[in-house]
Design a protein around this nucleic acid. Structure first.
Lengths: 209, 209
DNA sequence: TAGATTGTTAATCGATTAACAATC
DNA sequence: TAGATTGTTAATCGATTAACAATC
């Protein structure tokens, strides 16, 4: 599947399509038009057809889209079928929250392990995921290919931890810290979740005159 | 301060400007040009000047911007000086992570309390923040004005909890659940952090080709 | 068949970048 | 003063929306 540059705006909408289609499929809905999908997502029908046409023609005139097969197509586009794996670096409260409540499997990832330095945590399992000592990362990686590292360490440890992950050949880093990462290898992708930026945006919105 | 519509793209960049200026101020840097600020944020100088000019002329020809005063201007634009308050709804791992590690104060909010139903949590304090019983929310709100509710409850409780917050007159909801919220009152703003959408985007990026 | 809805092309809209006079 | 850098206007670029022929 060769991808000739898809704009970030389109890519950011794909997960939303995927989620909605998953909901619809579970609700037993078989077909959907771009119009009604658009209405349920506050997007125009045009935009949805335009977005999907970046990847191929998945619909049928006069009918719309088959929910199940469109969902499967988007799953493939997003790479949900690639057997990606993840490790959590930093099993503090945030790491634990992800281990306990985030559905890695539903999002295409198999969570293999978490790593921490806290002796009270090392050796335990949280939501069936083993917590190993930080120092065991390299050895673990030699036995288990790691697609991405989830960075939930304290800010001060972020750069060093990210560098170690990159050295081990991960393809991406999911960065929950406020530390800016400068990864020299451009093939390693970084996706950040920045709580502060989000809250400041909300602050702006509620502060409008 | 009357705001004639500012585009969301601009608003989303303001927190990044603010953070960078904060870093610079702490590093003792007094002045900054749009060019060097742009370089450090991977933006063009033009864009930064264009963005800032939405709110006024904060710079000086031949000099640039004064770091401290530009930071103060942006703080005001973002509403960081308005004495906003927050409560956390749901003191599970994610709520606890925010209580322990997220710097509400640095982001313009005073965190007043957390609410939960777990008898093991109710009555305790976490990071100096009292955890109260869910049922006490209304009484608490009568005594303390709440600007925003942080929604870290399980998905199934999200809609009901959001409705209660809206009834109490909050101005915004910071939604960490995957539940789509349909708030009828358009003056109540919702900002969501969707882990799944973020991870799926990363999945796409590492799956290319 | 007739109605519905796609995929795609063209038109519009908005956001980013470039250019430059103003001026510190 | 001369060099630097702003704020703003114009030009470009990209993304969204509209329109419609194709066709299920």
């Amino acid at each position: 599947m060769k991808k000739n540059h898809i704009s970030p705006a389109v890519i950011r909408r794909l997960p939303r399509y995927y989620r909605r289609l998953t909901d619809m499929q579970q609700a037993g809905i078989e077909r959907i038009s771009s119009r009604s999908l658009g209405e349920s997502l506050d997007l125009t029908a045009s935009q949805i057809r335009q977005d999907l046409s970046c990847f191929g023609g998945f619909g049928q005139q006069g009918y719309g889209y088959n929910v199940e097969s469109l969902r499967a197509e988007i799953a493939q586009i997003l790479g949900l079928d690639r057997g990606h794996t993840a490790v959590i670096m930093g099993a503090g409260k945030l790491g634990q929250a992800l281990m306990e409540s985030f559905h890695f499997t539903l999002n295409g990832f198999r969570l293999l392990a978490a790593f921490d330095v806290d002796p009270n945590l090392v050796g335990t399992t949280i939501a069936d995921i083993p917590v190993l000592h930080n120092d065991q990362l390299e050895q673990f990686a030699a036995e288990h290919p790691i697609s991405i590292g989830v960075l939930t360490v304290p800010k001060a440890a972020a750069v060093e931890t990210a560098d170690r992950l990159v050295n081990l050949g991960v393809r991406g880093i999911w960065n929950f810290t406020t530390q800016k990462l400068s990864i020299s290898d451009p093939s390693v992708k970084v996706e950040k979740i920045h709580f502060g930026d989000s809250l400041l945006t909300l602050s702006y919105m509620i502060s409008e005159e």
